[in-house]
Deep mutational scan, measured.
Amino acid sequence: YFQGQLNAMAHQIQEMFPQVPYHLVLQDLQLTRSVEITTDNILEGRI
């Protein structure tokens, strides 16, 4: 994955969860590489 793709995914998640800091979303995406998994992590309070 290149950074631009991760940034696009992070923006997509931020639209759904504007209360979660962008850098935390991006940090999780770098591990998961998945909008779905990061979204689940937010919903389950891991982020």
Score class of each variant (00 low, 15 high):
1 Y>H: 13
1 Y>K: 11
1 Y>G: 11
2 F>Q: 12
3 Q>Y: 07
3 Q>R: 09
4 G>Q: 15
4 G>P: 08
5 Q>K: 11
5 Q>C: 15
5 Q>D: 15
6 L>Y: 08
6 L>W: 10
7 N>I: 15
7 N>P: 10
7 N>H: 15
7 N>R: 14
7 N>S: 14
8 A>T: 10
8 A>Q: 13
8 A>R: 05
8 A>N: 10
9 M>Q: 07
9 M>N: 03
9 M>P: 01
10 A>Q: 04
11 H>C: 08
11 H>D: 11
11 H>M: 14
11 H>I: 13
11 H>K: 14
12 Q>D: 07
13 I>W: 01
13 I>E: 00
13 I>R: 00
13 I>T: 01
13 I>S: 00
14 Q>P: 00
14 Q>W: 15
15 E>D: 10
15 E>L: 15
16 M>T: 07
16 M>I: 09
16 M>E: 06
17 F>Y: 08
17 F>Q: 01
17 F>P: 00
18 P>E: 04
18 P>A: 04
18 P>I: 03
19 Q>T: 11
19 Q>N: 14
19 Q>D: 12
20 V>F: 09
21 P>S: 08
21 P>H: 05
21 P>L: 06
22 Y>Q: 05
22 Y>T: 06
22 Y>K: 06
22 Y>W: 09
22 Y>A: 06
23 H>M: 09
23 H>G: 07
23 H>V: 08
23 H>T: 07
23 H>Y: 13
23 H>F: 10
23 H>Q: 09
23 H>R: 08
24 L>I: 10
24 L>G: 02
24 L>C: 06
24 L>R: 06
25 V>R: 00
26 L>S: 02
26 L>H: 05
26 L>G: 00
26 L>T: 03
27 Q>C: 09
28 D>G: 01
29 L>D: 01
30 Q>S: 10
31 L>D: 08
32 T>C: 04
33 R>F: 14
33 R>W: 15
33 R>Q: 15
33 R>H: 15
34 S>P: 02
34 S>N: 08
34 S>M: 02
34 S>E: 03
35 V>T: 06
35 V>E: 05
36 E>T: 09
36 E>R: 10
36 E>I: 09
36 E>M: 09
37 I>A: 09
37 I>P: 01
38 T>E: 00
40 D>S: 15
40 D>P: 01
40 D>I: 15
41 N>S: 04
41 N>I: 02
42 I>V: 05
42 I>T: 01
42 I>L: 07
43 L>H: 06
44 E>Q: 15
44 E>P: 01
44 E>R: 14
44 E>F: 11
45 G>Q: 06
46 R>S: 05
46 R>T: 06
47 I>F: 08
47 I>K: 01
47 I>T: 04
47 I>E: 01
47 I>M: 07
47 I>N: 02
47 I>L: 14
47 I>G: 04
47 I>Y: 05
